[in-house]
């Protein structure tokens, strides 16, 4: 069986960026992440990224990936392109032309490897 991965990289916009966070991203009450607002991304004067998620702040840095990534999306008519399809060949897939598109490349990532710090405002000086 062969699975073709066809590049489909229209010059501009084909380069995506990755944000790497430690641990898991969760929303309160185990709501779905999809469709929700995640946070604010800022850059300071030196170009270092700062991410604010809820009451937490994360300091990170921009890194050029030594090993870049390709983003694959399944090329299907009718199906949801974002579906997570396993690519293992031992799946019960039909022996026809499975096609994936390489729809973007990722060469840079914003790495947030420190633990998030809580943001505390209005701390009363004296109780």
């Amino acid at each position: 069986m062969q699975i073709l991965l066809k590049p489909n990289l229209p010059g501009i916009g084909a380069e995506w960026v990755m944000i790497e966070l430690q641990g898991q991203l969760e929303s309160p009450e185990n709501e779905q992440l999809s469709g929700n607002f995640m946070g604010d991304l800022h850059f300071n004067k030196k170009g270092a990224p700062i991410l604010i998620i809820g009451h937490h702040i994360l300091y990170g840095k921009v890194m050029t990936l030594e090993k870049p990534f390709l983003v694959l999306t399944k090329r299907s008519q009718g199906g949801d392109g974002n579906e997570l399809e396993s690519m293992e060949t031992d799946q019960s897939e039909v022996q026809t032309d499975q096609k994936y598109s390489i729809s973007a490349v990722v060469k840079k990532k914003l790495m947030f490897k420190t633990r998030p710090k809580p943001i505390i405002t209005n701390v009363p000086k004296r109780l």
Binding site: L4, K6, P7, F69, E85, T89, I102
Partner: peptide, 22 residues
């Protein structure tokens, strides 16, 4: 959606518009 980690040689190959095959 899937991510594949590649080296710069494979990246250059893809950016030339050539297909990869599994």
């Amino acid at each position: 959606m899937k991510l594949i980690e590649v080296d710069s040689a494979v990246m250059a190959y893809v950016e030339e518009g050539k297909d990869l095959v599994i």
